[in-house]
Design a protein around this nucleic acid. Sequence first.
DNA 1: CTTTTTTTATGATACAGATCAGTTTTTTTA
DNA 2: TAAAAAAACTGATCTGTATCATAAAAAAAG
Lengths: 230, 230
Amino acid sequence: MTINYLNSCQLNFHDAISYDVLTDYERDLLEKNTVQIEYKKGETICKQGTFASHVIYIEKGLVKVYIEGNPKNLILTITPENQYVGLQTFYNGNNTFLYTVSTYVDTTVKLVDIQSFKQVLNKNPKFSTKIIQILNEHSAQTYGRFFCLTRKQSHGRMADILLCLSQSIFKSNSFELPLSRQDLGELTGLSTESVIRIMKDFKDDNLISVSCKTLEIMNPEKLKRISEVG
Amino acid sequence: MTINYLNSCQLNFHDAISYDVLTDYERDLLEKNTVQIEYKKGETICKQGTFASHVIYIEKGLVKVYIEGNPKNLILTITPENQYVGLQTFYNGNNTFLYTVSTYVDTTVKLVDIQSFKQVLNKNPKFSTKIIQILNEHSAQTYGRFFCLTRKQSHGRMADILLCLSQSIFKSNSFELPLSRQDLGELTGLSTESVIRIMKDFKDDNLISVSCKTLEIMNPEKLKRISEVG
DNA sequence: CTTTTTTTATGATACAGATCAGTTTTTTTA
DNA sequence: TAAAAAAACTGATCTGTATCATAAAAAAAG
């Protein structure tokens, strides 16, 4: 048996964590230690290297999670609403954020105090099991992206990312793309110019169509094949 | 503040999971549902895509954890003794192994039945918190490697991996290297020939010395600098 | 110990994708 | 609504690394 096809959106993430596994006391504790914050487009929610005092839950909006590098960043994930960010910071040795998170659009987040969160984790195995599940889904996705960026070449990577955005993030063949070409470059590990050229190739082949900020996937099957062969 | 230096061995992994957070009953349950198996050098412990019926604990030896690709694999981690492999397979949607694990040297592993493991996780929050910690350390390491392989060029990647092997795996500046040049290629995302050429460059600059299978890191500081500048 | 296979090594060549330089279009700001 | 700034685009050129071909050395098999 051979398993070759790996992409960046292996799994459908579970929406929202169910607070229903919590006791009334635990739910209360978390809610009391949660604040809701509004961020404008382009703002930074948390900065790589700073101490993590809270877990971030994206209530509404869209963010990118990325490692800052010189001269180029690496986007780890694009995270839409109803998902957690920052669960990897528990117990990572020094309790600092491993990445920076910033917004693509106006975004509402809930910041949950990390001590309270840990307290519940330490008491409620159903809750921690749920968290393990989420962490593992993230791992699976990271492995898929890892493979994509190190083993596929440019057209395969772009096809992979476009399909991932369409299927996992925007859940439609046609969507407004708030990411710049540079962002797509940081997602795919390509230069901005290469992203532009490949998008043009895809347009010329009628695989996608672009007008203003709207991107439409015209031929997902062919894109998938391109993603598969690399 | 800028944080630029990321490498593949960010953290010192906790050795062995402490069964001391378990009750007698739980410890018994796990031990009754554990088998110990010996593998010879080069054997496959688990195969990507197969159903995961157990968690793997490396009792003694050295293994590689890799994603199989056509034509090239991607080694996710090299795992030494006293560490778990396969914790990411819980609840990954279909309970299959995301990667293949095979041995570099004769290796003894303990296979823990996954149902029993889950049962304990679901009951004992101290245990599941510990597992979360391990998973997060793995995440941090994966992010470091991800960054290394997508943002550094060949000499930086090789320097990074050699330091990682020296510091995290063999814990010595001089060690027997059971990995072939091809393995180093799959770890760094380089061709075998490139690995050979870069090793030669490092030898010529007296950064390392190689005789038979013994590798010695002569100048870790300079290697670190090469790893940092990419 | 000899033969075969695998691994390591080296040089020549090719090419994918980066970089650079510049223009056009879009968005933001005043 | 005009000016400035940012983003998108295009072509020319460069370069890091893969690929190919082949040889030497080491390991495995007979």
